[in-house]
């Protein structure tokens, strides 16, 4: 069963073990530059709010309602990272799949039910404390950056040529009870509006700048995971205009300010503000173009087309 507890998605499997639980949080952060350098982890700016999608069913497209899950307001061009949290001192091991637009963020393969080891399409917690982006090479990820579907930036559009799904997809499988017991892992101990804009483009995630981050290999092996028990959740993302349209209020969070970027020693670019105005890495992910690259490519194509137009008699 999946619940929202304090803006955290909590997956519980009481039928497997009393402590079989895993928490997933989506945190706001600053965008690191889309250049050829690799950056350290950027600061954390608090959690993104999460709401039951069904609460806004009468204002959402039928397709979104069909998917169920939760809805999360996120400003366009804002960056996020995923924290795998432990409510208990020593969390129960779980295998967690993360996808955007139904493309696995670990392997780059299309979403499929269940776990695979070659290529590994999940992370193991505890062990993997967080995930900041797409695993594009060993020790390197490209940051998760929110962009509208339809502009060609998202991973889904770059790899499948279509922007159909968008959003974020999560699936969790707990460790098999007998494996957990045989490993004698420590028993977890409980520590106790303006005019409303029409709803149009859905949001997806695109690859941003490069960051150093290890995605760890599964040390337990595929057989350790209880694939008969699991939970999954579709996280629909809404930019500020969409959030106003569906919730009737401004998003609870504000996009990071120029000052916050300066404080972190990171450059700030005008296109970051669009919303205010209006393992070895997966082979398929390695060739992704960052948002900056797709913007540059789009501008180059537009310039070329403009040149062609001018060349017409």
């Amino acid at each position: 069963m999946i619940t929202i507890v304090g803006d955290r998605l909590t997956f519980r499997f009481p039928e497997v073990h009393r402590f079989a639980e895993s928490g997933i949080e989506f945190h706001r952060t600053l965008r690191i530059p889309d250049d050829k350098r690799t950056y350290p982890l950027p600061p954390r700016l608090g959690r993104f709010p999460l709401r039951h999608l069904d609460d806004f069913a009468d204002r959402l497209p039928r397709e979104s309602v069909r998917r169920g899950g939760v809805v999360m307001p996120i400003h366009q061009a804002e960056a996020l990272w995923i924290k795998f949290s432990d409510r208990f001192g020593s969390p129960y091991p779980c295998a967690i799949k993360v996808a955007t637009g139904k493309v696995c963020a670990i392997s780059g393969e299309p979403w499929q039910e269940g776990l695979t080891q070659d290529p590994q399409n999940y992370v193991v917690v505890p062990g993997q404390p967080w995930l900041d982006g797409y695993c594009v090479a060993k020790g390197t990820i490209r940051q998760f950056v929110a962009m509208p579907l339809g502009d060609g930036h998202t991973v889904e559009e770059q790899l499948t040529g279509q922007g159909v799904h968008g959003g974020l997809q999560i699936a969790v499988h707990p460790m098999k009870r007998d494996v957990h017991e045989s490993l004698r892992l420590p028993e977890p101990c409980l520590v106790l509006r303006e005019e409303l804009a029409p709803y149009h483009h859905e949001m997806g995630l695109a690859p941003g700048g490069r960051m150093s981050q290890e995605i760890y290999e599964d040390a337990f092996g595929l057989d350790a995971w209880d694939q008969d028990h699991g939970g999954r959740c579709f996280v629909t993302m809404a930019n500020s205009q969409q959030w106003m349209a569906i919730a009737g209020e401004r998003p609870p969070t504000q996009p990071p300010t120029v000052r916050e970027y300066a404080k972190a020693g990171l450059p700030w670019f005008l296109h970051y503000d669009r919303d205010r105005k209006a393992l070895a890495g997966g082979e398929r992910l390695a060739g992704l173009r960052s948002v900056a690259e797709t913007v540059r490519r789009g501008e180059a194509m537009a310039a070329r087309e403009e040149g062609t137009e001018r060349g017409k008699p």
Binding site: I2, T3, I4, H52, L53, G68, G69, G231, F234
Partner: peptide, 9 residues
């Protein structure tokens, strides 16, 4: 407790 509904996707 209110549970998050999983749909068709």
């Amino acid at each position: 407790v209110r549970v998050v509904r999983d749909g068709d996707w």
